[in-house]
């Protein structure tokens, strides 16, 4: 874990201050630092490691490049790290829509995917760090 903390810190320094957040797609308007109703919440860590820093969105994101994890009530591990290919778990705070996490980017991505049902959670397990896009489908 020490190694990891060093890497996360290095990533924060590498991304610079301010520019990271300014370029993030679909910046969240909800309460900062919590996983909020209506949103998909991506976490830097798995549930085994207390989730850590988070990023949440309520519309489709066809490429998580340019989005960054922020520290919140689930911890700061991974804060400042780019969301694309660095998430280890996902929660779906919506109750009508399922969110699909794709390993590749695009409006209709190719390859493996994970569907997080409304109100449910998932650790990404061996496909952690393979998250490139997140799209919503109505399931209510």
């Amino acid at each position: 874990m020490n190694v990891k903390r060093i890497v996360a810190t290095a990533a924060i320094l590498a991304t610079g201050l301010g520019t990271a957040v300014a370029t993030a797609p679909a910046a969240s308007a909800a309460t900062i630092g919590t996983c909020t109703y209506n949103y998909a919440c991506l976490f830097y860590n798995s549930s085994n490691y207390n989730l850590g820093a988070q990023f949440q969105h309520e519309s489709d994101i066809n490429d998580y490049a340019g989005a960054y994890f922020s520290a919140g009530q689930y911890g700061s591990s991974g804060a400042g790290v780019e969301v694309k290919n660095h998430a280890a778990s996902v929660a779906n705070g919506d109750r009508y829509w399922q969110v699909t996490i794709w390993e590749r980017s695009g409006t209709t991505p190719w390859g493996n995917h994970n569907i997080i049902r409304p109100g449910a959670f998932a650790d990404l397990g061996v496909v952690k760090n393979d998250n490139a896009a997140g799209t919503w489908q109505y399931a209510g």
């Binding site: 190694v3 890497v7 061996v126």
Partner: peptide, 21 residues
């Protein structure tokens, strides 16, 4: 992690659930 520690690339989580399957 050590190898990439000097870049902006980081890997989340050392021991995810399911890694042992």
């Amino acid at each position: 992690l050590l190898a990439v520690g000097c870049t902006s690339t980081a890997a989340s989580d050392d021991k995810p659930a399911g890694a042992g399957l």
